[in-house]
């Protein structure tokens, strides 16, 4: 059992990558990797698009709207996918909650 509080990402959440967490291309496997101290995650193309959009200014709701227009997909589905992904990042301490 962990005493670490579970962060809840909502539509109004504004997040960014914390200091020390960076997106880098792995030249060996030619895919993008999110690097953090003592941890790394290989990301697929959509995960990379999401991470690159985390500017610490736009909310999840705004990002969902932008992606909905860009990918011609339902905003609700996109918001759900983004929140699930960001929750995974947060659980691994790879996300900073701005508000």
């Amino acid at each position: 059992m962990s005493d670490q509080p579970q962060v809840v990402i909502t539509d109004s959440s504004v997040v960014k990558l914390p200091r020390g967490v960076r997106l880098r291309r792995d030249p060996v496997r030619n895919h993008m990797v999110l690097l953090a101290p003592e941890r790394a995650m290989a990301l697929d193309d959509i995960a990379v698009v999401i991470v690159q959009a985390l500017d610490g200014v736009k909310s999840v709701d705004v990002l969902s709207q932008e992606f909905s227009e860009k990918f011609h997909a339902p905003k609700d589905q996109i918001a759900q996918d983004i929140k699930a992904f960001l929750t995974e990042l947060s659980n691994r301490r790879m996300l900073e909650i701005v508000q």
Binding site: V33, D45, F71, H72
Partner: peptide, 13 residues
């Protein structure tokens, strides 16, 4: 590129 749920693999040592 079509929208899909983002996927990732945690790369362990």
């Amino acid at each position: 590129m079509a929208w899909h749920a983002p996927k990732f693999i945690e790369v362990s040592c």
